Amino acid sequence: MSKTTVRPMIEVALLATIAYILDLVTQPLSLGPWISLSFKMVPIFLLSFRWGVRAGAMGGFIWGLLQVVTGEAAGGWLTPIQGFLEYFVAFSLIGLSGIVKPTLDKAIRDKKRVQTLTYITVGVVLGGFARYLIHYIAGVIFWGSYAPEGQSAYLYSLIVNSSSFIGETIASLIVFFILQEFLGRLLITEQ
């Protein structure tokens, strides 16, 4: 195994574990009754921006796996299909943010700050949306019976999942925008 394949694997394991720990120990910052800022997806976005879609998907998968094997997913696991969708598929799809890696790397190398932040934003929105689309679908199918009386499962799932999507997207973007001066050192890898 070459050095170029070991380093991404180590980072996948490390950043997936950091995402899991952030999920356990941080409390979301509330922006009202429905939207909370949470930074737990940042390590998976970082992984995707550094190494691409495959590494990001592996990191998300491991994060979901850690939740399952440690029992953290127990309260959110209704059926095997629902659990698989929400803990393995949804978390893996965060890795889609890595689609922007080639253009992001070029923007960083060319020192084009606005383009860099634009690609970061596109990646974060894409990866976060892909994850929450799966949660929305699972919400309609599996969690719809928990909707308040008179509210459709579609609206209930949209409210619950879009508020999480918005909060986690905003929080992740805040982190990357704050770190914009260091993005070259954080995101460019010599493969």
Rank of each mutant, 00 (worst) to 15 (best):
E72Q: 14
V53E: 07
T5P: 05
V160H: 01
Q191H: 10
T189N: 11
L173F: 02
V69P: 11
I178V: 15
G144H: 02
A90L: 05
S145Q: 15
L22R: 07
Y136H: 09
W51F: 12
V42G: 07
K40Q: 14
L46E: 13
W77C: 12
H135D: 05
L65M: 09
R185I: 10
T17C: 13
L158W: 13
T116E: 08
F49C: 02
I18T: 08
T26C: 09
G64C: 13
P43T: 02
D23Q: 13
I141H: 01
E181F: 14
R185P: 03
I137K: 05
I170G: 01
L179G: 14
I21R: 04
I188E: 10
L29Q: 10
V25T: 04
V140E: 09
G144V: 04
L31H: 10
V69F: 11
L46T: 11
Y154C: 05
A74T: 07
G123D: 07
E11P: 03
T116R: 01
L133K: 00
P28I: 05
V100P: 11
V42Q: 02
R54N: 12
V100Q: 09
K3V: 00
N161T: 05
Y87F: 13
L14P: 15
Q67C: 07
D110C: 05
T169P: 11
I159R: 08
A13K: 00
S157G: 02
G184P: 04
A171P: 12
F91Q: 09
V124E: 03
L155S: 12
W51A: 06
E190D: 15
I120H: 04
T118I: 07
M9L: 15
M41H: 01
S172W: 04
F142Q: 06
L22K: 01
E11A: 11
G83S: 10
E72P: 01
L78N: 12
A73V: 08
T189W: 01
G95I: 06
L186Q: 04
K101E: 11
F129V: 02
S145N: 13
G83H: 04
T79K: 02
V68F: 15
V53F: 14
R54C: 14
A153W: 14
P33S: 11
Q82W: 08
L47R: 00
I108E: 06
A19D: 07
V100M: 11
E181N: 14
V68Q: 03
K101T: 12
I44P: 03
A74W: 02
L78V: 13
V12S: 04
Y87N: 08
I188H: 04
I35N: 10
A171K: 06
L187N: 08
V100L: 09
P33K: 12
E11Q: 13
A74P: 06
G98Q: 02
T189M: 08
A107G: 08
A13Q: 09
V122I: 12
A107H: 03
F91M: 15
I18K: 05
A19T: 09
T103K: 15
F91I: 13
L22D: 04
R7K: 15
